[in-house]
Amino acid sequence: MSYKPHVFRLGQLTEPMYISINSEKTGANLKSLFKNNGYSVRDIQSVMGFENPQSIHKWLSGRSLPSLDNLVILSKVLHTTIEDILVVDGDVVFLFNLTWTIHLNR
């Protein structure tokens, strides 16, 4: 039996969906990705074209998140996807999956 994904139309989605990105865990994830790929903060600073490393240190500490533009660059440099860089809070993912399950079973 092959899996056939359900296609949703905008009118079918009656409940708003929210996600919450955990900035501290995303920072820890970035730190791990840097290490696994052999990059230092200075290496990433150079690739990103930043004059100083403060923004990167803020990402790693969870005080801020990279912009969408910077996430695209990071995903290319770190050979991964934006989805694998960002850490979404688990309870929100559960609600998201529950909502989709409810819609799928209608």
Rank of each mutant, 00 (worst) to 15 (best):
L13G: 07
Q45K: 15
V7W: 00
M48R: 01
W100C: 13
N52Y: 02
T26Y: 05
I21D: 01
V77I: 12
I56D: 01
P5S: 07
H79M: 06
I85R: 04
S23F: 03
G38V: 08
M1R: 11
S46T: 09
E15K: 15
E24D: 00
H79L: 10
K31Y: 06
T80C: 13
I73R: 04
E83S: 14
E24Y: 12
I19V: 10
E24G: 00
S67R: 12
L104H: 15
L13C: 10
S23E: 06
Q12F: 02
F94R: 09
V77Q: 13
Q45S: 04
W59T: 03
S23V: 01
L95N: 14
L86H: 00
G11V: 12
S46Q: 11
E15H: 05
I82V: 15
H57I: 02
M48V: 05
E51N: 09
I44N: 04
N52F: 02
N70E: 08
S32A: 10
N70S: 13
L104A: 13
T99L: 09
F8P: 01
K76C: 01
K4I: 03
T81Y: 02
S32M: 07
L13H: 04
D43L: 00
S55E: 07
S61T: 14
I44Y: 07
V87C: 09
I102D: 09
G90C: 04
N105D: 11
N70D: 10
S61P: 05
H6M: 13
L60K: 03
V47R: 12
I102Q: 11
G62M: 05
M1P: 08
L78P: 05
I56E: 02
K58A: 09
E51V: 09
H57E: 07
I85M: 08
L65H: 06
N105T: 12
D89E: 15
M1A: 14
V7F: 05
N52K: 07
I56L: 02
W59H: 05
N29E: 11
L71G: 02
T80F: 04
D84Y: 10
F34H: 08
L95G: 10
H103T: 08
M48I: 01
V72Q: 07
K76T: 06
